[in-house]
Amino acid sequence: MIDVIRAPAQARSQRTMDEVYRSLDALLKTKPFDEITISDLATHADVAVGSIYARFKDKKALLAGLHLKVSDQAITCMGPLSAPAKWEGRTDDQMVRAIMKSVDRFYRREAHVLGAAYLADTGHITEMRTKVWEAAVENFTALLVARDPETDPAQLQLAVRIIVRLTTAVTMQSVLIDWISRWKGAVPNVVALEHLSRFAVDTIVRARTGRLNTGDADVGALDEGG
């Protein structure tokens, strides 16, 4: 549990906490986080303001808690999505495109929470983003190694780091700039995903042929997450 959130000791307190989370989730779909007050949350959740402060240090702590729940969902989804059996008989191209679409759907479904959390960017939220990043690298590296055990695992891990880093950047851009489609000459999201999928497949091929390297780049920088 995040240190600015007090874990409930009773079932009734847990229900109150869950209702406050649901209320924040709902309100974030209608207005920016900065415009949501504790009073708004209390009214929406039909709880006392004091009940909220009994569980959360402040409004950002509540957002961090909701972001934690979304992050845990993301990590849970990676399990079946990165299971080798799921992709038996499928080409790398088919697998990558399907995974990219799943990631895009998740980001769009949770855009209101992820966007608010990204902009608030507390230490707890940064920690969870890093945790999701590390889980993605671990799960999808294991998937590629299982599909091609003859390839150097370090090359495959580097490929996954690069792909996850760029995928995160593209999807978060869509989350933060929901009006990007109105830019003059903007590339539609479906087109961006198509090219990102092609890049991902090409990166995997280069890793399998031992042609993936970072030159003078700082490999460690790829571990920063997004």
Rank of each mutant, 00 (worst) to 15 (best):
E224V: 10
E88P: 00
V190W: 10
S102W: 10
V113K: 04
R206G: 05
A186F: 03
T43C: 08
S51G: 08
W179R: 14
E127A: 08
T37A: 05
T209N: 15
V47E: 09
A116H: 04
V190G: 04
E110W: 06
L66P: 03
T214K: 02
I38T: 10
G79A: 14
D34S: 15
Q73D: 13
Y21P: 01
D18P: 04
I204S: 03
T151P: 09
V47G: 09
P188Q: 01
F56G: 00
D3N: 10
V170T: 09
V170N: 07
A64L: 11
Q10K: 15
V47I: 12
A64Y: 13
T141W: 04
F33L: 14
A159K: 07
A98I: 06
K101P: 00
R208L: 10
G210W: 05
D72T: 01
R105V: 13
K86I: 09
T30G: 08
V160E: 04
L193W: 10
N139D: 10
K69H: 12
A192E: 01
I204C: 03
S71H: 03
L212D: 05
K29T: 06
K60W: 11
V113I: 15
G210C: 12
C77R: 15
G215Q: 07
I52H: 13
S23R: 02
D152G: 05
P84A: 11
H124A: 15
A154N: 07
V4K: 04
R6T: 14
T151S: 15
D93S: 14
L41S: 08
R211T: 09
D3V: 07
I177S: 03
D46W: 07
A135D: 13
I177P: 00
F140A: 02
V103Y: 14
R182D: 15
R129C: 01
R12K: 15
A207P: 00
S71P: 00
T151E: 11
V4W: 11
M17F: 05
I2P: 00
S39R: 13
Y118D: 06
L158G: 04
R105N: 12
E88F: 03
A186I: 04
N139M: 11
R55P: 00
D178W: 02
D34Q: 15
G65R: 04
P149F: 12
N213Q: 08
K31T: 13
V201M: 01
I38L: 07
Y118R: 08
T167P: 00
A42M: 11
V4Q: 07
E150P: 00
I162E: 00
E194N: 09
A169Y: 08
M78A: 03
L143I: 01
V205Y: 13
A85H: 07
I177E: 11
Y53R: 06
L63H: 03
A48L: 10
T141I: 09
R165V: 06
S71M: 02
G215M: 05
D104I: 04
R165D: 15
N213L: 06
A169C: 07
T30Q: 15
R90W: 09
A186H: 03
L158I: 10
D72F: 01
R129Y: 03
E150S: 12
M17D: 06
K60S: 11
A146D: 11
T151N: 09
V187Y: 02
R208S: 08
L193R: 14
L41K: 01
A221F: 14
I180R: 10
A116I: 03
R147Y: 04
W179A: 11
L143M: 01
